[in-house]
Nucleic acid binder design. Structure first.
Length: 547
RNA sequence: GCGCCUGUAGCUCAGUAGGAUAGAGCAACUGCCUUCUAAGCAGUGGGUCAGGGGUUCGAAUCCCUUCAGGCGCGCCA
């Protein structure tokens, strides 16, 4: 719909002698009475052409008038050009939608370009919490969205299975293990304290007995570290499975060290003179690329920082020649962006190669009161608990009705209480309802194959035309969501479409004795179902056959 | 102190890359199930877009500033 109009406007602009065509702004007017689509192009050209907007609009309109798909062209307000399509055009486009389904709905914006999206990447030192859930829902939906738009998308989870935190995890479990066997052993300072630490220790006692009793940590540590993080990682994978999120690749940090990629990355930067020694430490010259200060990569004690492996990790990613890299981070890591972009540039790539999408913090509430969370103290509500309490679809939907950069209050009581009237069910119910209509139609003997040949011109009710127009706007919403990397636009569209379908259902009976009309209406339902399915699939939310 | 994000209806949030009369859900109130699913429908009320300046044909949106909240500013991750 938008594409056709843009083509017409461009052609008309040329006719009135404008060849340098600016990016055309086409949108939906504030009121349906104004028309189907609208453009302020006459106003934006006014200064350039030194003519009043209305005059330009008049000239454009007279060129556009000869187009047969346009029913009406109105010039309104300060110079808006409002256009209304003919019914014939709407029916023809609806027919295309019915015939080609997602091909019609999804603009091929990616053209096969390769994108990698890295998200969640929570340390395997404890279970996932709600913040990871938000990052997960967002990353997964964005991946689905870009894939639907013709990108070749890979989802990656980066596993921080090396370094200090993971050792601290092993020590925490080790201390519990000794304690369970009656040996007094000090828990590490700043160690992990959740109940899951004790559980893992129990498991080790059960499996290994007293093999490691009264050993020193540096004798037994490797076993405890490995066992613990692998256990936690498999728990994370189960949680992700319950949340309906999958990854294509899992990159281990440890492996980056073992394969020598970390040292190669450092040597690479050193050879470019972006790495130097100072005060018994090794530094990366981040200030050469606009960061506030240089950053340590090898500490005085000879240990690497987390940043060191991140350099190697991003080097590895960038050398895989993706067209675009997207990292999704919690907003508390925002200060880290200049540093990692400095790495990208130091490696000889434009910093735009990596896009970091920040997802804001989630405040978890129960009945309006904040739930205190501290990972190390072991006090937190896990993602799994939230999924079990309010449901995966509802949880995802709540995340996907917000912009990523909005601070989110997630009230467990509200999410649960609204459950029966939650907008997610409103959308899913529309889908289930349509299935039910089709089941009923089949009982009445209206065959599905006849629906595709329905006489769509019988869809003449005001409600029906509104719905058709809404359906035809989907590609436009889709395109906007893809370009802005904003899946939530799809969510809002889904709600709007559903809010047209339900009243229609109540007002106009779909299956009646009038076979021809029934077929036409079923065809419309089929189109709605197609769009709902497409949108829900992108959001990663289930489309239930019945409810 | 500096940096990033946020401030829109009682609550939770949208507002399409500056466009027309600022929207939705929830909550509140009134009606509707012998007909394809009432997780639905029809209707009512609800606003100093945090405050103040500026940019221009036009600002919730861009710039400056004040206020409020969140998060960062490690040889932690």
């Amino acid at each position: 719909m938008k594409k056709d109009l843009v083509a017409i406007i461009e052609e008309s602009l040329k006719k009135i002698g404008i060849n340098a065509i600016p990016p055309l702004d086409v949108g939906v007017p504030p009121s349906e009475d104004f028309g189907d689509l609208s453009t302020p192009v006459a106003m934006s050209l006014s200064k350039l052409l030194k003519k009043p907007p209305k005059k330009i609009a008049d000239e454009l309109a007279s060129c556009m008038l000869e187009k047969t798909i346009l029913e009406r062209i109105d010039i309104a307000g300060p110079g808006f050009i409002n256009i209304t399509f003919t019914k014939e055009y709407l029916y023809a486009e609806l027919k295309k939608l019915l015939e080609s389904g997602s091909v019609f709905l999804r603009e091929n914006i990616g053209q096969g370009r390769r994108v990698q999206i890295e998200f969640i990447s929570a340390n395997p030192t404890g279970p996932l919490h709600l913040g990871h859930g938000r990052g997960g829902a967002t990353g997964d939906a964005l991946a689905n969205l870009l894939k639907a738009a013709g990108y070749h998308v890979e989802r990656e989870y980066y596993i921080n299975d090396a370094g200090k935190q993971i050792r601290l995890l092993g020590q925490s479990v080790f201390a519990w293990y000794q304690k369970l066997l009656g040996v007094e052993y000090p828990a590490p300072e700043e160690g992990y304290k959740g109940g899951y630490i004790e559980e893992i220790a129990h498991e080790i006692v059960f499996k290994m007995g007293s093999t490691y009793i009264q050993k020193r940590f540096d004798e037994a540590g490797e076993f405890f570290i490995e066992y613990s993080y692998k256990k936690i990682l498999s728990g994370i994978k189960e949680d992700l499975n319950a949340f309906g999120i999958t990854f294509d690749t899992w990159q281990s940090e440890k492996e980056l060290f073992e394969s020598g990629e970390v040292s190669r990355a450092i040597e690479d930067l050193r050879s470019k003179e972006f790495v130097y020694e100072k005060e018994q430490a090794t530094w990366f010259r981040a200030t050469a690329f606009g960061d506030d200060k240089d950053r340590v990569i090898i500490k005085q004690d000879g240990e690497n920082t987390y940043f060191t492996s991140d350099i190697a990790y991003h080097r590895k990613k960038i050398e895989k020649k993706y067209d675009e890299l997207i990292d999704i981070w919690g907003a508390d890591h925002h200060g880290y962006i200049p540093r990692i972009q400095a790495v990208i540039e130091a490696l000889g790539y434009p910093k735009e190669k990596l896009k970091v999408l920040l997802v804001q913090m989630v405040t978890l509430l129960r009945g309006g009161k904040p739930v205190q969370m501290s990972k190390r103290a072991g006090e937190f509500v896990t993602l799994r608990e939230v999924i079990e309490e309010v449901g995966a679809d509802t949880t995802k939907f709540i995340f996907l009705t917000r912009r990523p950069d909005s601070h989110l209050e997630f009230d467990l009581e509200v999410a649960k209480a609204q459950s029966s009237e939650n907008p997610v069910f409103y959308v899913q119910y529309a889908y289930a309802r349509i299935n039910s209509i089709f089941a009923h139609a089949q009982e009445k003997g209206i065959q599905a194959d006849k629906i595709s040949h329905a006489d769509l011109s019988l869809l003449s009710h005001h409600e029906e035309l509104r719905i058709i127009k809404k359906l035809l706007m989907y590609p436009m919403i889709f395109e906007g969501a893809v370009k802005a990397h904003e899946p939530h636009r799809i969510t809002f569209y889904m709600q709007e479409l559903s809010s047209m379908f339900h009243p229609y259902y109540n007002k106009c009976r779909i299956v009646t004795d009038d076979i021809a009309l029934s077929r036409a209406r079923l065809a419309l339902c089929e189109a709605i179902r197609t769009v709902l399915r497409d949108g829900l699939e992108i959001l990663g939310i289930s489309a239930p056959e019945r409810m």
